[in-house]
Computed example of a mutant assay.
Amino acid sequence: MTRQTSLETALRRLAPAIPAHEFAVVVDHACGSPALKRATPEEAAWLSLVAYIRHRMTDYDELLADHYDVDSARYFVADDMREILRDWGVRRALAPDGGDGGGA
């Protein structure tokens, strides 16, 4: 099984209702990220998914641009992230502080 196939399988299990476009982007990120190369497919899928949602579907980057620190910005977008994760069928919990456990 290729790395891409393993990541696709892991992401389908993790987020069964993720839309096709987001699915492709998350898998591409997980495949292409040097930082995720040594991660298990499951962990790479999770970290890529959380990073995608945080940076593309919330105000996280705008908060950072407005000089919020990383922890505060993550806190303020955590509820939005949880809602998206829930909508996509994800059962894994986001950390209470809005972090992912991996620094993504």
Rank of each mutant, 00 (worst) to 15 (best):
G102R: 04
M57G: 06
A93Q: 13
Y60N: 01
H67P: 06
R54P: 05
L94N: 00
D59S: 10
R82T: 09
L11E: 00
H67N: 15
L63V: 09
I18M: 12
S72Y: 13
Q4E: 12
M81W: 06
G98E: 03
E8T: 03
V27H: 00
R54C: 05
S6D: 11
E83Y: 14
E22A: 08
H55Y: 13
D87L: 12
R92K: 15
A15M: 04
L14H: 00
Y75V: 13
A95G: 09
P96V: 13
L49R: 03
L64D: 03
D28W: 05
E62G: 10
R38S: 15
R12Q: 13
I84S: 02
Y52A: 07
P19T: 10
T5L: 14
T9K: 12
M57K: 14
L64E: 00
R74L: 15
V90L: 05
D61K: 08
D28R: 12
R86H: 10
D69I: 10
R54N: 03
A104W: 13
R91D: 10
F23W: 07
R74F: 04
L85S: 01
V26C: 00
A44G: 13
D97G: 05
A104R: 15
V70I: 13
S33N: 12
G99F: 02
R92L: 09
